[in-house]
């Protein structure tokens, strides 16, 4: 790999842009394609499939067998609520490879003592989220139980097309949430993207078990279904 190509690849990765490196294993010839170049490419369909699946592998493009290295941006996990569950979720999510940010305007909750070494924002979602930059490579969890704090975050996550959106609370709580989101103008199919009650049903009881169920659900959505476009 030429250093210049490696540099451009690393720049794209730093800018959260998906990229594909095509290598002719026989000749060593190599090319870098950025996500934004795919649309105009003659092999658009095959390249889009690679990006959607997010898996590197062999492809045949224009009659040539190539190896396609697919580089998707690292997944962010943004949690509204510096709560007990988040204290377990933050280190567990980091182990799984997610970039974690916790947002909670309540300063009693959002203390560095409770969240050592975690990117913690003691701000309202409306202030923090534009800065964090939710995108389709982001997972989002609303964990405060307080609509004043959770709802603006959910609005932002739905608008940004986060690949995973989960909200803590019982079915009854979620029923009221659905009503509020409907009033706020969100369509039923958008609201249906929210996973609530949050997490896979594994009988979780303790905060760390609930964190495990949330992380399992995020993993399932990310890995079992095609990557979001």
């Amino acid at each position: 790999m030429r250093l210049e190509l490696l540099q451009r690849l690393n720049e794209a990765r730093a800018a959260r842009e998906a990229a594909i490196v095509l290598t002719d294993l026989a000749s060593g010839g190599q090319d870098l394609l950025l996500e934004r170049q795919v649309e105009a490419h003659i092999e658009r369909e095959a390249l889009e499939t690679l990006l959607r699946n997010g898996r590197s592998g062999s492809v045949e493009l224009g009659g040539t067998a190539l190896f396609a290295g697919v580089y998707l941006p690292p997944v962010k996990l943004v949690c509204i609520g510096a709560v007990h569950i988040s204290q377990a979720l933050a280190p567990m999510a980091r182990l799984v490879g997610l970039d974690v940010t916790i947002v909670d305007p309540r300063e009693a909750f959002a203390t560095t003592e409770r969240f050592q070494g975690v990117d913690l924002r003691a701000e309202w979602p409306d202030v923090a989220l534009p800065e964090i930059g939710l995108d389709r490579w982001s997972a989002f969890c609303a964990l405060t139980h307080d609509p004043k704090i959770d709802d603006p975050g959910l609005h932002a996550a739905l608008r940004a097309g986060c690949f995973y959106i989960g909200a803590l609370g019982s079915r009854k709580t979620h029923g009221r949430r659905v009503e509020r989101l409907t009033e706020a103008g969100f369509a039923a199919d958008e609201i249906a993207r929210i996973h609530a009650p949050i997490g896979l049903p594994i009988g979780a009881q303790s905060p760390s078990e609930i964190a495990l169920s949330i992380l399992s659900e995020i993993t399932a959505v990310r890995r079992l279904k095609p990557q979001p476009r």
């Binding site: 790999m1 998707l72 690292p74 490879g97």
Partner: peptide
């Protein structure tokens, strides 16, 4: 980073090469 179970290998490759080391990937 998503290569998480560890380190960002591609960034390391660039760093090593930029330092003038001989590098293979």
């Amino acid at each position: 980073m998503n290569e998480a179970e560890g380190d960002d290998v591609l960034a390391i490759a660039q760093g090593w090469r930029s330092e003038g080391r001989e590098v293979a990937l």
